[in-house]
Amino acid sequence: MALLEVEGLKAYYGQTQALHGVSFALEPGGITTLLGANGAGKTTTLRSLCGMVRTEGSVRFDGRPISGRATEAIVRLGVGHVPEGRGTFTNLTVDENLRVAAYTRRDKAAAQRDLDMVFEYFPILKARISQQAGTLSGGEQQMLAISRALMLGPRLMLLDEPSFGLAPLIVQEIFRIMRRINAEAKVSMLLVEQNAALALELADHAYVLETGRVVMSGKASVVKSDEAIRKSYLGY
């Protein structure tokens, strides 16, 4: 059974419609990437999955319908959302940023294990633990955003352009760790990226969005090597 099943998803900002019936499915354990140009609706898709915008259509997580539920309720089912712009609590410390995400978890021992795991993946965060999060570098804030999502103990992670505005070396480092998280912590991922080449390296499946519609989908390896697809949909 698919971990996430999206069917006929429409999304609205006030009167404007941003998604026009998006459908896709995610297999458990994999990394899927959602590609598309500026304004294609990638961020809107992730927001829709978490109930952050008004939607129509069906979203099922682990077989359970989640559309129409409150964001915090969806999140607690095990959907970690690493938002566009990183969503750092700038006035809280790194430690507090991480602990707030574990606030609703019943199993405190598991939360502590996840904290240890986070520090193993991102040792720099441990070094910065009592620093105000707003003073972290962009790359550190991105690591913190991923770590916050991990502290929820998620089964699915939604990542919105984690490479945005970061130096190539840092991006490589973060993507390497994302791969480890996927393999070791068994967290499935839906990765939104503008940098298609980078995302296709990591993902095993790809969807391409254009003005709120899925216009292409396929195995990442196929998309990557098919010049015609790349030229017409991804522009490189």
């Binding site: 952050m52 607690r76 959302h81 938002p83 969503g87 609590f89 995400a101």
Partner: peptide, 12 residues
Amino acid sequence: QNPASARLAGVS
């Protein structure tokens, strides 16, 4: 401080 992020952290 940041209602949107708080929701994404599971806070009501």
